[in-house]
Simulated scan of single mutants.
Amino acid sequence: MTPEIIAGHGPILLICDHASNSVPPGIDLGIAAALLDKHIAIDIGAASITRALAAQLGAPAILATVSRLVIDFHRPPDHAGLVPEISDGHSIPGNVGADRFDRIARYHAPYHRALGEMIGSYRPRLLVSIHSFTPALESGSAPRPWEIGILYNRDTRAAHRAIAAFQRVGVVTGDNQPYSGRDLNMTLNRHGEGNGIASFAIELRNELIDHPSGVDHWAGVIAPVLSGIAQAIQSA
C-alpha cells in the first residue's frame, strides 16, 4: 500500500508514521476489530493534524497508510517491536511467526523510500514528525500531563527552539516526553540526522485532537511555531 502524499512547497516536510489503522487484505492480526480504534493501532488524531498543518503551511507531507500493528514504520527493521506480538498489554496473535521480511519489503521499505524521494525532491530545511500519545498507558503508567511533547536525539537545533516557543505561548510542553527521542527516533535519525536536516517530533496528547475543533485549535497553535523555526533554521 502506497503512502499518502500531500504536495506542497516551502522549507518544512511533515511526516506521519502512524496515520492509519488499515490492515491490508491477507493479513489477519487475530484481534477484535475494536482494538483497531485504539492507540496501539493508530496515533489518534495525528493524521488529521498533519493534514491541517499541511493545508495551513502549504507544506508537503507523507502519511503512512498501514497500521502500526501490521508493521511499525517508526522502528528500524531489526527492532523487536517492528511487527508487534504484544502492544500496551494487548496480545496480537496473528503476528506470532509472521514473515517480517515480507512485511518490510511490502510496506516498510516502500514507505521510507517514498520519504527519501520526497526529501530529494523538496529539499526541506526542517522535518517535523507528528505523533499522538495517550493520557496514560492502558498497561499502567503515571498520568502524562503534557499537552505537547518535543522529541529529539542528537540534533537539537530545531527541538530546543520548539520547546521554548511552545512554552512561551503557554503550552504544557514535555522535553523528550512522554518518551525520549534518544531511545526511539528511527524515522528522524534516518532521514533527518542522516541527511543533516534539522528535525524533531511533536507528540500531542490524543484527547486534545480526537475531534475537529481540537484539530483546528492545535493546528493554529503549531503552524506559526513551525514557520518561525523554519525561518530561524534557514537564517542560521
Results as ranks from 00 to 15, higher is better:
V96E: 12
V96N: 09
V96Y: 02
G97V: 06
G97N: 05
G97T: 03
A98C: 09
A98T: 04
A98V: 13
D99M: 13
D99H: 11
D99F: 09
F101V: 11
D102P: 01
D102W: 05
R103D: 03
R103L: 10
I104D: 02
A105C: 03
A105T: 05
A105G: 05
A105H: 03
A105R: 08
R106E: 03
R106M: 03
Y107R: 02
Y107I: 00
Y107T: 02
H108V: 01
H108F: 05
Y111C: 00
Y111N: 00
R113D: 02
R113L: 02
R113H: 04
A114F: 00
L115P: 00
L115C: 03
L115G: 01
G116V: 01
G116P: 00
M118P: 01
M118S: 08
I119V: 13
S121M: 14
S121A: 15
R123T: 14
R123Q: 15
P124L: 13
R125Y: 09
R125S: 15
V128K: 03
S129M: 08
I130G: 02
S132C: 09
S132E: 05
S132N: 07
F133S: 08
T134V: 13
T134E: 04
T134G: 05
P135H: 01
P135R: 04
P135Y: 02
A136S: 14
A136L: 07
L137D: 04
E138N: 13
E138R: 12
S139N: 14
G140K: 11
G140S: 09
S141G: 13
S141T: 11
A142N: 13
P143Q: 08
P143T: 08
R144I: 08
P145I: 10
W146M: 08
W146I: 04
E147A: 12
E147D: 10
E147T: 06
E147P: 03
E147F: 03
L151K: 05
Y152M: 09
Y152L: 09
N153G: 08
R154P: 00
R154Y: 12
D155M: 07
D155Q: 07
D155K: 08
R157C: 09
R157G: 08
R157E: 11
A158L: 07
A158C: 12
A159S: 13
H160Q: 14
R161F: 00
R161D: 01
R161C: 06
R161E: 07
A162R: 02
A162L: 07
A162W: 03
I163Y: 02
I163T: 02
A164D: 12
A164Y: 01
A165W: 03
A165K: 06
F166L: 15
F166A: 03
F166Y: 10
Q167E: 15
R168K: 14
R168A: 15
R168N: 12
R168Q: 14
V169R: 15
V169Q: 14
V169G: 06
V169A: 08
G170L: 13
G170P: 11
G170W: 08
V171A: 08
V172A: 10
V172F: 06
T173M: 10
T173G: 09
T173L: 09
T173I: 07
G174K: 00
G174N: 02
G174C: 03
D175M: 05
N176I: 07
N176K: 11
